[in-house]
Design a protein around this nucleic acid. Structure first.
Lengths: 340, 340
DNA sequence: GACGGCCGTGAAGCGCCCGACCATCGCCGA
DNA sequence: TCGGCGATGGTCGGGCGCTTCACGGCCGTC
């Protein structure tokens, strides 16, 4: 089975290759009649443009890139990435644009991937995840003039457009909600403090507590692992003035925290309330169900894809946009604090 | 910033373009000295082959394709896909080969994607998931001569090499284990009966029960949704001769099942044992932890990638291979059945 | 009859690979 | 001594499929 080329079409339709090209690309230079004839032959032969030839000619690669900087174990566990991908896809497939995926070890490898993609003309643009402070990726992408959209920010993205989740607002909502329930001693199990949004949350937490006259909240760090988050929760709950409510940076971490709390004989939510950033099925599978800050991740993926297309088509300088705000979904894991 | 081409290297090194090409591709025809000089200049300029030009020249596209036929919500929830991808990647990145991802609606769309990828020269081969009976994808890929590796089988994959999970063996292990614990009435919440491996499991279950003289097991169907699997479990447990052990086709479904059982006041594992196909963090997050049949998914992804490379390089006719067998991981959700 | 608009053709070239060809040199046999 | 020959190390140029610029007939119009 041989792939048909425009030369084949030209032969069959009795016109030159250029005419075929014009016809197929809706360019002027051929009569309507010829155009129709060419289109008919093309669809009869099942012609499709050879992506490499197009790309070589200086056009688009017809694909965007997504580098995932995550260990294998984690990729499976957390739903974020896949939901984001499916959101991206919804926009991509509409424009029959491909998605190039690459799992990378660290930032250095990620940057190497961007350089390679750029040099090999593999992608027309990339989506950047998990912005950090002074993120070196931003500068590299700017230098390469490789269109990119950052999911994160809005600060520190340089000239790259970004789509930023309103983390401070989300955290504020949670704290006000918890305060209204009578909680005063709050704690926060947070992620990598180099990540922009993690810092935003911690800052917001402190700020709102200050404004509301609540005691200084505790922030401890835990990565995504079982052990780490269990340990963090254990430490918090073992302290003499233990918090009455804990906010977790992920659903995964929160679920582990809930296990630990129950294990330690605490009643949730009577003696301890728990809230998770990121909602997922996980939050509804545990008992009591976890109160969560939900996000429309596929929606954000779609939004990012649209922004990236805009950046690819009209060059840099596009505006950053906020993502849809977090929605607080109160469930069984939060309630009025009852002193014994 | 301009991407350097071999012409640039040729100019700087004072040789012809062909010489550069020979040098860069480890072909004979240049002296060792020239080769070194060319390589030095190339790395100095940061040259990388233009993937499109290579592909156009008749070479490889330098990427493989993976079409995911799954609704967005689900992709996030189940860890399988991402673990598989990370396994694929481990092999791909070693050969600096890309991964093209596409989320598709249904089989028809998936086939259209394969045709498109083929016609556009976008991928050198594909990984096919979730083989069904009389799967139309097999014939299409054979016709296109598009190298492919099927994850599933081993029956019904035509000339395509496959990597098949030993579902019957896994199921047999579970049943023997449950029988040893004293269980007699078994039930099975199964997935889409069009899927090969799902049928294999159901067949094995019936067969082992027959051999062991256990009563005919019940098999009910449930898709991945919360409601569906909850409903299936509820029905099973509401029946007068309700099963004492239930085997679920996914961790996700099993977790939902556990919730339902606890909700109905059953004690797990005293009155009901639960086992899940597919292990994941989910199984360890619930209480009691779920007994599961574990699989090394990233390992399977890597294996599939290696097979696909072999198929791409040496044409069809490669052998199918079994995946590593399931490992039964007994946890808190299974135990001796205690009649009240 | 010059001119402009419309259709269409020819050819170049994107970056890379590779088959065909060529220059040089050392070696051998007449 | 010298022509011929093979090996070595390199150049030339075509072509993969597609786009696009420059041009050239053809017709109708002023």
């Amino acid at each position: 089975m041989k792939r048909p080329t425009i030369a084949d079409i030209a032969g069959r339709a009795g016109v030159s290759r250029s005419a075929v090209s014009f016809a197929l690309n809706d360019q002027p230079g051929v009569s309507e009649e010829t155009r129709q004839r060419v289109l008919a032959v093309a669809s009869e032969l099942g012609w499709r443009p050879h992506s490499a030839a197009r790309a070589l000619r200086g056009g688009r690669a017809g694909a965007i890139g997504l580098a995932l900087q995550r260990p294998a174990r984690l990729l499976g566990a957390e739903p974020f990435t896949m939901e984001l991908i499916s959101g991206l896809e919804s926009e991509l497939s509409a424009r029959s644009c491909g998605l190039n995926l690459q799992v990378v070890e660290d930032t250095e490898a990620e940057i190497a991937t961007y350089r390679r993609w750029w040099a090999e003309h593999r992608v027309d643009g990339v989506i950047v995840l998990n912005l950090r402070d002074d993120d070196p990726r931003v500068g590299v992408l700017e230098d390469l003039h490789l269109p990119a959209v950052v999911i994160g920010g809005p600060a520190g993205t340089g000239t790259l457009p970004s789509i930023w989740s309103q983390d401070a607002a989300g955290m504020t909502d949670v704290v006000e909600y918890l305060a209204a329930l009578g909680h005063r001693r709050l704690a926060h199990v947070s992620g990598d403090p180099n990540m922009r949004h993690i810092v935003d949350r911690a800052d917001a937490l402190r700020e709102v507590c200050r404004l509301r006259g609540l005691p200084e909240p505790t922030t401890v760090r835990a990565d995504y692992s079982d052990e780490d988050s269990a340990q963090a929760t254990r430490r918090l709950l073992a302290s003499p003035d233990r918090p009455t409510a804990i906010i977790y940076h992920t659903d995964l971490t929160a679920v582990t925290g809930l296990e630990v709390a129950l294990e330690m004989g605490l009643s949730v939510p009577d003696e301890l309330s728990l809230v998770a950033f990121n909602d997922s099925r996980l939050c509804r599978l545990v008992n009591p169900k976890l109160t969560a800050l939900a996000h429309d991740i596929p929606g954000r993926g779609a939004q990012a894809a649209r922004m990236l297309f805009a950046a690819i088509e009209s060059g840099p300088g596009a505006d950053s946009q906020p993502a849809e705000p977090y929605r607080l979904l109160p469930r069984g894991s939060t309630g009025v604090y009852r002193t014994r």
